[in-house]
Design a protein around this nucleic acid. Structure first.
Lengths: 193, 193
DNA sequence: GACAGCCTACCTGGCGTTAGGTAGGATATA
DNA sequence: TATATCCTACCTAACGCCAGGTAGGCTGTC
C-alpha cells in the first residue's frame, strides 16, 4: 500500500492546518475530523502524531513562540534603530493578515483562553509576554536614544501597542478590511513622533 | 407543581446567562445544557423561550445593540463636551469589565465570527458599526469645536479606538489585570490633547 | 377550555479518543 | 543471503459522551 507520508511531513501538515483552523474558528470549533478530512488521513491517525488535541495546541503555541522569537532576533540583527524595529514588528502582522486573512493566532487563543487546557493557557500567556517584553525593550531603547518620543512607561506602552494590534486584527478580519489593521499601525507609529 | 418562572423573567435569565457564558467561553463553547443547569429548568424548556441557539444569539446581539445605543443617547444627553463623551464612553468598558471580569461581548463574537450563523454575523457587524459611527461623530464634533486635537479622519480614528479597546479587554481578561484596559483608555485620551 | 411554562423521553450527529490491526520498510542475526 | 524482528504510518471499528433539537404530555392559572 502506498504511504501517504513518505517525506515525514504529516506532522507539519497537521500543525499548519491546525493553526489555520484555529485562526479561522478558534480552538473549540475545529475538530480532529476537520484535520483528517483536509489532510487525507483518518482521524485516528492524527493521534499517531499528537497524543491529544490539547497536545497539538500546546505544540502549536510553542512553535508560534519560537517563530516570533526568531523574528524578533532577526529584527534586532537587522537594525539598531528603534523606530525601524517597531515598523518591522508591525509588518509581521500585515504579512500574516495578507497571507491568512484571519485573526491573529494570539488574539484567537486569548479569546478562547477560558476554555483552553491549562498548559496551553500558560503558553499563551508566554506568547503574550514574549511580544510585550520585546516591545518594551524596543521602546525603552528608543526613549533612551531619543528616537522614540513618548510619555509613560515602556512596559505599559508595550502592552498598549500589543493590545491595539490584537484588536485591530480582529476588526480587520470581521470586516475583511486590511485598512483596519494598517491604520492602527500608522496611528501607533504616529504617537512616537 | 411550583412554577419556576412566576414573574415571566426566565427569558431574561436565559439572555443574561447566555451573554455571560459567551463572554467567558465564546459561542461554540457554551451549550443549551449549560444554560438549563444554571437556570434550573430542563434543556427542552429553553426552546420554549428561544426556538434555537442561533435565535438566542441573534436576540442577544440585538439586545446589546439597543443597550449601547441607549447608552450613547444618555451620554449625548449628559454633556456636549466631546472629550467628556469619550471619557464616558471608555467608562462603559471599565464598568463592564469590573462587573464581568470578562472579554467584551463584541470582541468575543468577533473572534467567533466565522462560526456564527449568518444573521448573527450581520448583527455583530452592526454592533461594531454602531460603536464606530457614534465614536466618529464624537470625534468629528470634537475636532470642529477644537476640544479634541488629532490628525487623520474621525472615521478612521474611531475604528482605531474601538479596535484598541476591544483588544485591551482581551488582554485584560487573559491576565486578569484591569490596568491593561484602563491604561489603553488613558493612552487613547492622551492622544487627543 | 385555553394557554403558559415547564416536563420526560428521545433523536441524530459530531466530538475526542482508543483498541487492535496491517502493509511495508529498516535492521539485526544466522 | 535468508529470515526474524521491529518500526513507521497509517487503517477499521468502535467507545462514551455531549451537542442542538423535537414530540408530546403534564400542571397550574385565567
Amino acid at each position: 500500500m502506498k504511504k501517504v507520508n513518505q517525506e515525514g511531513n504529516t506532522s507539519q501538515a497537521i500543525l499548519e492546518l491546525s493553526q489555520s483552523l484555529i485562526q479561522e474558528r478558534g480552538y473549540n470549533a475545529f475538530s480532529v475530523r476537520d484535520l483528517s478530512k483536509e489532510i487525507g488521513i483518518k482521524p485516528a491517525s492524527i493521534y499517531y502524531h499528537f497524543p491529544s488535541k490539547a497536545d497539538l495546541a500546546h505544540s502549536l503555541v510553542i512553535r508560534q513562540r519560537e517563530k516570533f522569537n526568531s523574528a524578533f532576533s532577526e529584527i534586532d540583527a537587522q537594525t539598531d534603530n528603534s523606530r525601524k524595529k517597531l515598523e518591522l514588528y508591525l509588518m509581521l502582522f500585515f504579512d500574516d493578515f495578507r497571507k491568512t486573512k484571519r485573526i491573529c493566532f494570539c488574539s484567537m487563543l486569548a479569546a478562547d483562553f477560558a476554555s483552553l487546557p491549562i498548559r496551553v493557557q500558560e503558553e499563551v500567556k508566554g506568547l503574550f509576554s514574549d511580544h510585550e517584553q520585546w516591545l518594551a525593550k524596543v521602546l525603552e531603547e528608543g526613549k533612551k536614544s531619543k528616537v522614540l518620543n513618548f510619555k509613560g512607561s515602556p512596559d505599559i506602552r508595550a502592552k498598549n501597542i500589543f493590545a491595539a494590534i490584537e484588536g485591530s486584527t480582529i476588526s480587520a478580519c470581521t470586516f475583511r478590511d486590511e485598512k483596519r489593521l494598517t491604520s492602527v499601525a500608522e496611528w501607533i507609529e504616529s504617537m512616537f513622533k
